[in-house]
Computed example of a mutant assay.
Amino acid sequence: MKYMHSTEGLTEQMLNGFFVDWPNPPNCATHLKLLKRSYKAIVAVNEEEDQVVGFITAISDGILSAYIPLLEVLPEYKQQGIGKELLHRMMKELDGIYMIDLMCDAELQSFYEKVGMAKSNGMILRNRENQSG
């Protein structure tokens, strides 16, 4: 598995199969656009198939706050540690930012708690030592 911290070289054709169970999922062109416009995007690529199999995005002001709106792994690649690796890599990218927030379904909260996030109305991480910027 190759992890890329850049969207350079990604194509729409590499993004098939995501947003499972979404009633109105974005198409591959929109998916590529959201990856490219994110503050940070990390993708997991199966190099043998030239296919993105997982991704995580963050939007941020780069100083005090960041929000992780999307973390997805293709169904056939789940339970292989890809999501965990994407999350760990993103947390390293966001190191030094005061608040890192995300929203998730209740059944996913334990996954995020393992990286130090806390339950709230959503899931949050507050690096108080970085509060003043």
Rank of each mutant, 00 (worst) to 15 (best):
Tyr3Cys: 13
Met4Ile: 14
Met4His: 14
His5Gln: 13
Thr7His: 07
Thr7Asn: 10
Leu10Phe: 07
Glu12Tyr: 01
Glu12Ala: 05
Gln13Met: 05
Asn16Ala: 04
Gly17Val: 00
Phe18Glu: 08
Phe19Leu: 03
Val20Met: 08
Val20Asn: 06
Trp22Val: 03
Trp22Phe: 09
Pro23Gln: 04
Pro23Cys: 01
Asn24Ser: 08
Asn24Trp: 01
Pro26Phe: 01
Pro26Trp: 00
Asn27Trp: 04
Asn27Pro: 00
Asn27Tyr: 01
Cys28Leu: 14
Cys28Thr: 13
Ala29Lys: 10
Ala29Phe: 07
Leu32Arg: 00
Leu35Gln: 05
Leu35Val: 07
Leu35Arg: 05
Lys36Leu: 14
Arg37Lys: 15
Arg37Ser: 15
Ser38Lys: 02
Ser38Thr: 02
Tyr39Val: 08
Tyr39Leu: 06
Lys40Gln: 07
Lys40Asn: 05
Ala41Arg: 07
Val43Trp: 07
Asn46Arg: 12
Glu47Pro: 06
Glu48Cys: 08
Asp50Ala: 08
Asp50Lys: 10
Asp50Trp: 00
Val52Gly: 03
Val53Asn: 08
Val53Ile: 15
Gly54Ala: 05
Phe55Ile: 14
Ala58Phe: 10
Ile59Gly: 01
Ile59Ala: 03
Ser60Trp: 05
Asp61Ser: 00
Asp61Thr: 00
Asp61Val: 01
Gly62Asn: 03
Tyr67Phe: 15
Tyr67Thr: 10
Pro69Phe: 12
Pro69Gln: 11
Pro69Leu: 12
Leu70Met: 14
Leu70Ile: 13
Leu71Glu: 12
Leu71Gly: 14
Glu72Phe: 15
Val73Ile: 11
Pro75Tyr: 11
Glu76Ala: 15
Glu76Gln: 14
Lys78Glu: 15
Lys78Cys: 15
Gln79Asn: 15
Gln79Val: 11
Gly81Cys: 02
Ile82Gly: 09
Ile82Ala: 11
Lys84Glu: 15
Leu86Cys: 11
Leu86Phe: 10
Leu87Asn: 10
Arg89Gly: 06
Met91Pro: 03
Glu93Tyr: 09
Leu94Phe: 05
Leu94Gly: 04
Tyr98Phe: 09
Met99Leu: 02
Ile100Pro: 00
Ile100Gln: 03
Ile100Met: 02
Met103Arg: 11
Met103Tyr: 14
Cys104Asp: 03
Asp105Ser: 04
Asp105Tyr: 06
Asp105Asn: 05
Glu107Lys: 11
Leu108Asn: 09
Leu108Tyr: 08
Leu108Glu: 05
Ser110Met: 11
Phe111Tyr: 12
Phe111Lys: 07
Tyr112Leu: 03
Glu113Asn: 13
Glu113Tyr: 12
Glu113Pro: 10
Lys114His: 10
Val115Trp: 00
Met117Val: 03
Met117Leu: 11
Ala118Asp: 04
Ala118Val: 07
Ala118Gly: 00
Lys119Thr: 13
Ser120Met: 07
Asn121Trp: 15
Gly122Ser: 14
Leu125Pro: 02
Arg126Gly: 06
Asn127Ile: 00
Asn127Glu: 04
Arg128Met: 02
Ser132Glu: 13
